[in-house]
C-alpha cells in the first residue's frame, strides 16, 4: 500500500540535508509518494551552488572524514537520486522573495509554491516530518 510522506526542510546545514534526503530517498524507494517543501535556510539544500558545500556545524568538522569513510553519497547525488525516484521538491516562494532567490538558481525539476501548495498535499499525508 503506497503511503504519502510530507517533509518540511527548513534548515540549511549538511546534517540537515542528509536527514531530509535520506528519509525522502528511502521512502521513495519503498514505493511511497514523497513531497519536500523547502523553506528558509532549507532552500540551500536545493540551491545549485549552496548544495555543493553545505556547512557542517561548528566543532563537528571532524565528521567530514566520517562521511567520506562511510562512503555516503554527496548531497547533490542524493538529491538527484531522490528526484529520479519521483520525490517532488517545492521551493517556498515567499522565502525565495525574502532571500532574493530566483528559480533558476535552484536545481532543475523543482516547483515553486506557497504554503497552501504544501498544505494541500500534506492534509492527507500518512507521515509528516520537519527538519
Amino acid at each position: 500500500m503506497s503511503k504519502k510522506v510530507a517533509i518540511i526542510a527548513s534548515n540549511g546545514g549538511l546534517f540537515d540535508a542528509y536527514k531530509v534526503f535520506n528519509i525522502a530517498t528511502a521512502a521513495a524507494a519503498t514505493e511511497q509518494e514523497v513531497t519536500i517543501f523547502f523553506t528558509f535556510e532549507g532552500l540551500n539544500l536545493i540551491h545549485k551552488e549552496a548544495q555543493e558545500e553545505l556547512p557542517i556545524p561548528a566543532g563537528k568538522e571532524h565528521f567530514q572524514e566520517g562521511f567520506t569513510k562511510a562512503n555516503v553519497p554527496t548531497i547533490p547525488e542524493l538529491s538527484m537520486m531522490a528526484q529520479e525516484l519521483g520525490v517532488k521538491f517545492i521551493g517556498c516562494q515567499m522565502t525565495m522573495d525574502v532571500m532574493g532567490l530566483e528559480k533558476d538558481q535552484l536545481i532543475d525539476g523543482i516547483e515553486v509554491g506557497g504554503a497552501v501548495t504544501f498544505l494541500e498535499y500534506a492534509k492527507d499525508a500518512d507521515i509528516t516530518l520537519t527538519f
Binding site: A26, A29, T30, P73
Partner: peptide
C-alpha cells in the same frame, strides 16, 4: 557492498 544507507535500499529497489 561498501554502500551506505540509503543506497542498498535504492539499488535493491
Amino acid at each position: 557492498k561498501g554502500l551506505a544507507c540509503p543506497m542498498p535500499i535504492v539499488r535493491t529497489k
